[in-house]
């Protein structure tokens, strides 16, 4: 039963994600954290960080992580199959029938507006995640460093992940954490 609800929940997440892995965050929050209680928002951020520096699509990595936490190895596999299932169906339908799908004016208009909506939803998610993830001054500094550099320079997320993990360990040792 748990496996079935994992599959269905992640299929929903896959079907409602418009854009890259970041666009999945608002949907994951609603379906996985609020509705199912399978992970906390701190855990979601942990998985997201690990998913950035491990191979593969971030959406898939996050699904495997949460699935494993809920129902072991089978859970990890089922959640992943769930998140890719809508893509399989939708893409093959479109590829088979509507080869010029992306050129249809109505599709273009709809997606231009969906992008606006995704921006707003991500803004809301960031405000929510901020509360759990950025609890002291040192964390604010780390946030600003990563945001600033990633906006203006093309740096691999792996660099940020290694830097922040190291900084987290050093700051904790130095007793700066929590101040």
């Amino acid at each position: 039963m748990k496996l079935l609800s994992l599959f269905l929940s992640f299929a929903k997440v896959g079907a409602m994600t418009f854009g890259g892995g970041y666009a999945m965050i608002p949907i994951l929050e609603r379906e996985i954290i609020d509705k199912q209680g399978w992970a906390s928002s701190e855990e979601l951020m942990d998985y997201y960080a690990v998913g950035q520096c491990t191979p593969g699509v971030i959406a898939v990595n996050t699904a495997t992580f949460i699935g494993y936490k809920v129902a072991g190895i089978a859970g990890g596999i089922v959640a992943t199959l769930g998140v890719v299932f809508p893509s399989l169906v939708i893409i093959m339908l479109i590829a088979g029938i509507l080869t010029n799908f992306a050129d249809i004016p109505a599709v273009k208009s709809a997606f231009a507006a969906i992008r606006v909506c995704v921006c707003v939803l991500i803004f809301n998610s960031v405000l929510k995640l901020w509360k759990g993830a950025v609890k002291d001054r040192a964390a604010v500094v780390l946030y600003l460093i990563v945001l600033g550099i990633s906006l203006f320079f093309d740096v691999s997320p792996i660099v940020f992940v290694i830097f922040c993990a190291t900084a987290g360990i050093l700051l904790t040792r130095m007793g700066v954490r929590g101040k």
Partner: peptide
């Protein structure tokens, strides 16, 4: 401690 540093990193990347 590593995850303490990684959480703001994730929020910043998002």
């Amino acid at each position: 401690a590593a995850f303490y540093g990684l959480r703001p990193c994730s929020v910043a990347l998002i």
